[in-house]
Design a protein around this nucleic acid. Sequence first.
DNA 1: GACACATGTTGACAGTGTCTACTTTGGAAA
DNA 2: TTTCCAAAGTAGACACTGTCAACATGTGTC
Lengths: 200, 200
Amino acid sequence: MTERTVRNKDLREACIHEGLAIIESDGVESLSLREVARRLGVSHQAPYKHFQSRDHILAAIVARAFERFAAYLDARPRGANPREDLAEMGRAYLAYAEAYPLQYRLMFGALLPDPAAHPEMMAKAQHAFSLLRDALEAVQPAAAQEEGGLDLDALFVWATVHGLASILTTCAGQTLALPQSVLEQACAHTLAAIGRGLER
Amino acid sequence: MTERTVRNKDLREACIHEGLAIIESDGVESLSLREVARRLGVSHQAPYKHFQSRDHILAAIVARAFERFAAYLDARPRGANPREDLAEMGRAYLAYAEAYPLQYRLMFGALLPDPAAHPEMMAKAQHAFSLLRDALEAVQPAAAQEEGGLDLDALFVWATVHGLASILTTCAGQTLALPQSVLEQACAHTLAAIGRGLER
DNA sequence: GACACATGTTGACAGTGTCTACTTTGGAAA
DNA sequence: TTTCCAAAGTAGACACTGTCAACATGTGTC
């Protein structure tokens, strides 16, 4: 599939790339260092020269995923005013989760390696969260005055959007068996409710 | 730990019980049929007489977890009026996620077996969701008139509460490194925002 | 040229899920 | 009571996984 027998420094990058490809097509649970090595045409131990353990390659892949996610959010069409712009961001968030459900599950699916042990992964995740904070700050200048007010509002917005994305990409259609019309309206309805929730 | 050498019909029940115990203490990822068998003092193949595969025992455990979750929600202190009662439910939801984080991650962590293949698991999950719908119907009788209106509001509420629980139990304190004061206020602040979001 | 170090290879080990074949056992039918 | 059979449990094997250790190879520096 990819170029055979990748060597040298490229191998580290190639492992991340191939690992992300595996996750995007088959999910995190079927990521294996041996399979990565096999696809790259190297021995099963070669990746270990670049990553301490499976968790370390996973952390690198997650960091990469957060980078792409943040870039996608940042490249959204800009709204006419702060309020509209925040809604654009919500739509972009949900669109990304729908377009790359397995990658989304990778980032928020709770089988990540211990964050404390992988600071680079944490940094990329925090950056994605900061984009939301920034968009929100433009909408709610008042909240920024209170101690932690902005964080609290951001947490509300993120919890709601993340929760909806999580439900739509993992359970809803399947486990909850909600009618199609509800699923179609879900995004718009929820974003409107978020707007009301932010009012003071 | 448990009674040695469980036999006969009890073994099925014992497997679910022991499996849930393993998940509660070590997480889903370290659940193994062989470990379950070992703890129960039977051969590594004995559980397979009661469950077709690892996914089938996992589905049974998830169903059990949803039962307990629903029972906990149903046993909440009842609020004075519908609106206050819905808030009680939100608090109960978040309290459960905090008390049993690994069990919560089991139910909503996205590494479940295919729901379509495990109808009993689906049924238990839907029942938990229906409790929320019922509490919400008392608050929003108007929404029940519109086609799917109740489902949409329920989806908003659930997404928000689930999202917050998911963030608090998996990433927040760790990956996002939010200040303690924010975490303490998060529940009350978010529940208040949900209330505003439901207004018409 | 000799040495060191990074990179890659090979082989082994314990752990897992699952397949197949064997033994045991408890209860119904004769 | 004896017979028989299906359910329940056991034992061994297989392929797969992550990881450890020892070995090979090459590249760049003293």
